[in-house]
Design a protein around this nucleic acid. Structure first.
Lengths: 332, 332
DNA sequence: GATGCGACTGTTAACGATAACAGTCGCGAG
DNA sequence: CTCGCGACTGTTATCGTTAACAGTCGCATC
């Protein structure tokens, strides 16, 4: 910057001003400076900018996994909502582990992010302490916690799963099994399981028939294995609801292998409305959730919180319930 | 840090040393300082660290799209390979646009990353200038350019597509159509199309029968529409090769709708070995590429370049060709 | 002709850490 | 007893930018 200033015959401060739109500087001077910048290929150092202006321009997003099409869509939503704001995203994958999340929170907070978006509501005590102590705007997504840290954009996974069980019951299925998540800390998977159990009670459909399998998002193979274990224990099963579309897809393929016709012999339902669910044969009934929209809204409300400059006590705090829809296709 | 130093009765420099493992400092002092840090909840400011130490700890990864399972896997590979190195990833999505890529390069370079991973080999002139001028280690992935900027981890998309056409020809298909990418700057899609055309010549299968559709990665719906347009123009088509599994899946569904039996009436092949390709009926033949491995290798070689401290002229430059495999399933 | 104001530019001191160098201290060797 | 060395700690300057404040200058106003 000093070099540019010298070449343009001004002070470094004037160069700094030329690079920002709001500063008062004459047209002629700015043009001259920008011309020099272009000529010498100067790239301003945002690190120094961050230090001096006390604004990092970073937003942290922590999601369980990158190779899950739901979360990938959410990341896309966040990314799109940040475009044009000058903010950049630091992405972290927690692998569904609260400890890994805590670690990521600790290391990313050193970068002095301006806000943070977290999937879920299960955090270690230290993670919660770090977050509240940092005093940044937070958006929790993909869940609807009773005790939110700050803003929320999500939905009740239990309610969403319950809705699917009611759909199955409405279609006349009575002996409904569930393929759950194998990871205890997958709170969304656990909530879906809870919703399944509650709905069984509501419809008087007897005790739960469930097996856990499939690391989230659940590989296709494990969905097939899980179906096998379910049928071994409850051979009279007439429907299976899987914690994710991937597991459901595996279950459906296992049905094909066993010569069972879906949904005549057994119904299969998934969760997430992955693109995959439109390509199975028969097409998969599933619960659609607004993956992209969750990210986009989270980003937008985080930005709103960052731009808010009134009394911190009266900052608007969004608690948004995104909708979910049972999509009845051919598999139920 | 000053506060911590005062509370521990040492200088700020000693606190700084206590936080790094290599510095010479007595066990007792370090323990005392760490205890104070824990007690007051001090979090070191990496921004200041960056400025003073001239190391950002950032790596930039620019990929075309986040909601493409191939690239998502690559991102996961990069992420995993960076774990434990103290490096963090800044992720950017170029939307398959060189201009957007240039913009992202310009803005992310301000963060003074230590290295950069780029998908593809088509960059604007300014982007190339920015990159070479910045003098960072670069890894180009997902392509195998003739004029690489630095390191490469990729494969020839043309060769991979050619292999699939040969597979189709081996199975006896003669009138092979191609569903290409609608985005001209999708170089990988274009390369696949080129491979298709070359293979047709090699096998003497006449002029190309191709339509473009489907924004990458190609939505399922557009694959179906593209199949319709292909059949309208070349009703005698006996095989269709799609630029991605998603488009192929849509094409297959369109076949079902039209009452065509795959592969008896028409064969369908995809590209990418998305999980979806194992769930179609019949299961989809596709070209498997090592998406995760590309990211992991790129990350590893970038780290190696960063850790290298010999003569810059003799730094090892990896140019890795990752394998691809034609996976023959039931659809061909 | 003084005054004030607006438009622009410069100066100085941070921002929060680390690099580089300069001690200090204890202890064993000569 | 002195010297030197190793182990540890402190001091000062610096990283590249911006905040805050202090000019300077021209021009309209009274």
């Amino acid at each position: 910057m000093q070099d540019v200033a010298r070449l343009a015959g001004v002070s470094a401060m004037t160069v700094s001003r030329a690079l920002r739109s709001d500063a008062s500087i004459s047209q002629a001077t700015r043009a001259r400076i920008l011309e020099v910048i272009e000529r010498v290929g100067y790239i301003p150092d945002q690190t120094a900018n961050m230090l001096a202006s006390r604004r990092s321009g970073f937003v942290v997003a922590l999601i369980p996994a990158l190779n899950n099409s739901n979360f990938a869509d959410t990341v896309r939503g966040i990314n799109d909502s940040l475009a044009g704001t000058g903010l950049q995203m630091i992405l972290g994958a927690t692998d569904y582990s609260p400890e890994r999340e805590e670690e990521l929170i600790a290391t990313t907070l050193r970068r002095r992010p301006e806000g943070i978006i977290l999937a879920g509501s299960k955090h270690t005590a230290r993670a919660r302490r770090l977050l509240t102590h940092a005093g940044l705007p937070i958006v929790q997504i993909w869940d609807f916690p009773d005790d939110p840290l700050d803003q929320v954009v999500g939905f009740s996974n239990a309610d969403a799963a319950r809705a699917m069980v009611h759909h199955l019951a409405d279609r006349g299925f009575r002996r409904i099994g569930f393929v759950g998540s194998s990871v205890p800390s997958d709170t969304r998977g656990f909530e879906r399981q809870r919703g399944y159990c509650e709905a069984l009670v509501e419809r008087g459909l007897g005790p739960p028939r469930l097996v856990n399998a499939a690391k989230p998002p659940g590989s296709i193979e494990q969905g097939g294995l899980a179906l096998g274990r379910l049928l071994e224990r409850w051979p009279d099963l007439d429907a299976v609801f899987c914690v994710s579309d991937l597991a459901a897809c595996g279950a459906m393929m296992e049905c094909h292998r066993r010569g069972m016709v879906v949904p005549r012999d057994i119904a299969i339902a998934g969760f997430g409305d992955f693109e995959i669910s439109r390509c199975t044969h028969p097409r998969m009934s599933t619960v659609a959730v607004e993956s992209y929209e969750i990210g986009a809204l989270a980003g937008r409300h985080l930005v709103a919180a960052l731009e808010y400059d009134g009394d911190p006590a009266t900052r608007p705090v969004a608690r948004i319930r995104t909708p979910f829809t049972v999509i009845a296709r051919e598999s139920t």
